[in-house]
Amino acid sequence: MNFVSIDFETANEKRFSPCAIGVVVANEHEVLDEFYSLINPLMGFTSFNTYIHGITEEDVADAPTFPQIWPTLHKYLSENTVVAHNASFDMSVLRQTLDYFNLTYPDMDYLCTANISKRVWPDLINHKLNTLAAHHGIAFEHHHALEDARVAAKILMKAFSTYQADSMDIFLGKCNMTKGRIYEHGYVPPRAKKTAKRKLYF
């Protein structure tokens, strides 16, 4: 059951300012392929964003623009299940950037590894990417797009193993969750179904 993990870094507060993208193709056992690129957002950087990820305007001066790398990204994303940690951010970056450059949306399902981890490991102090990485003994450079995408992929692998699931449908059934979906100028977010509370009898 292959899936694709992604992570964006942005140049500023605008969601249509991606300056780096990391893509990891994996299955329940191993990483199969990786892609990383800086992106020239064709707009300025804020000091706050550069402080977070360390990327500057000089770093991306000769980098491809989003429309230039979109054909490659589209091949990775289209008709696949895509995951991201705090997926609402990354999917918003994807959709707003496609809108900004008037590019065609991919048809793809998506999931959030932050929400999945809340179901699988509910007792952790929080479900941030670095907390989950530390819990599972995964060393990485936080806020590097490829490393973050790789950790999200490994977290999903750990979740598959914890729930002993050998298919995405079985895994989501055990999580009591549904996939989200992105399609041409629209999306449906993934849903976590409410679990029944135990009744106490005295």
Results as ranks from 00 to 15, higher is better:
143 H>L: 14
49 N>K: 00
18 P>T: 09
39 I>Y: 12
49 N>E: 00
124 L>Q: 11
191 R>P: 00
37 S>F: 07
110 Y>R: 09
76 Y>D: 08
24 V>R: 10
97 T>M: 12
14 K>P: 03
88 S>L: 00
151 V>T: 04
119 R>T: 03
127 H>G: 09
129 L>D: 04
22 G>W: 12
149 A>H: 05
191 R>K: 06
159 A>P: 03
9 E>C: 06
32 L>E: 11
136 H>S: 15
102 N>V: 04
44 G>K: 06
187 Y>T: 03
108 M>C: 10
193 K>A: 01
118 K>W: 08
4 V>E: 06
84 A>W: 06
176 N>T: 11
125 I>H: 05
39 I>L: 13
7 D>K: 08
73 L>Q: 12
52 I>D: 04
167 S>Y: 14
69 I>E: 11
126 N>F: 03
160 F>H: 06
49 N>P: 00
75 K>G: 15
163 Y>I: 06
179 K>L: 15
147 E>M: 12
83 V>S: 12
3 F>H: 15
179 K>W: 13
80 N>G: 11
94 L>S: 05
98 L>A: 02
61 A>S: 01
89 F>T: 00
32 L>S: 09
92 S>A: 03
199 K>T: 04
31 V>P: 05
86 N>Q: 02
138 I>V: 07
38 L>D: 04
86 N>W: 03
84 A>P: 02
13 E>K: 08
161 S>K: 15
117 S>I: 02
200 L>N: 06
177 M>L: 05
3 F>T: 15
176 N>K: 14
171 F>P: 02
19 C>K: 14
110 Y>M: 12
17 S>A: 04
97 T>H: 10
169 D>M: 06
28 E>V: 13
58 E>M: 09
83 V>W: 06
36 Y>E: 03
23 V>E: 15
16 F>H: 10
